[in-house]
Design a protein around this nucleic acid. Structure first.
Lengths: 157, 157
DNA sequence: CCTGATTAGTCAGGGCACTGAGTATTTCTA
DNA sequence: TAGAAATACTCAGTGCCCTGACTAATCAGG
């Protein structure tokens, strides 16, 4: 009766999209390293020595989740974690040689996987795909941190 | 050095999109009932008496996950689960009055949330957004179930 | 019939994701 | 400079999501 068509619900579509990606990642990229884990490795390739919170910010993971992901990567020997001598609250992170090696290997496979994943779309459609998703995500993200009235938003925070 | 730009990685974008949606759902729709739970309620409004596996198929959840979701909805008294007398393997599901009531209430709120979520896109862009995501998801889903031999494959591969 | 395959569901295990509460450290300020 | 506020991280709790192994019930062929 009052049932709704889920194919017009962005949340439902987002979930399905992620599932589809998870699947392809698992078969084409790696069964050990997950996509969020790769994102963390990638962030540390770009900026070695980053602290835990900032890495989370870069890849879009909250404090609890990033702690778990980093703990797994540490157990696998892909990164090292040391207390910042300058600021005893921070943990500084750095990839091991093995971590660098894994990142390099997965970078290649990930590129291949992305091609397969996006194959149903033309070049322009792919650009549009990125753009639309990013705009929606950014806008929703913006609703989260309501702009404090009167506060200048310049660079950050 | 060899770091990659995650904003061109559909998996990363999909994850961010889902996070953004999760957030908005939590604040605008419900803190108790999640989006997947609503999808299950919705499937049972459309087709009461469905068995567990089929519900999972309708909403895109595997056998393990659908079992958990249904168990939670049962605990909350939103649906009833009975063994099929015709086929002792199946569990047949049906919403309770409370389940119907909750579905009705959330349907309204969900519609409002979707509007807010998609507000950054124009009407045509929204249509495109749905279409692109669906095509990518469907294609990836297709890779999973290898087409039975002899079957002509529309797209390619 | 009865045996072997298929099917529905459960269970254990691993990983992602969030909130809320708590700890330690640093920084700000009265 | 002592107390308050902010910051980085941890921990417990809940829920989603998958795979692989298992149980129970049904179905199909010989």
């Amino acid at each position: 009766m009052a049932a709704v068509d889920l194919s017009t619900h962005p949340g439902h579509l987002a979930r399905r999209l992620q599932q589809a990606h998870y699947l392809l990642w698992n078969t084409m990229v790696s069964e050990e390293i997950t996509s969020p884990q790769f994102a963390v490795l990638n962030a540390l390739v770009a900026e070695p020595g980053l602290d835990q919170r900032t890495v989370g910010e870069r890849v879009g993971l909250d404090r609890s989740t990033i702690a778990e992901v980093i703990s797994r990567l540490g157990r696998r020997g892909l990164l090292d974690k040391v207390r910042d001598p300058q600021d005893g609250r921070r943990s500084l992170l750095r990839l091991t040689d093995e971590g660098l090696r894994v990142h390099r290997k997965l970078t290649v496979r990930t590129a291949r996987m992305n091609q397969v994943f996006l194959a149903p779309l033309s070049g322009e459609e792919q650009t549009l795909f990125f753009d639309l998703i990013q705009r929606v995500s950014d806008a929703a993200e913006g609703l989260r941190n309501p702009v404090t009235p009167g506060e200048p938003i310049a660079g950050h925070r």
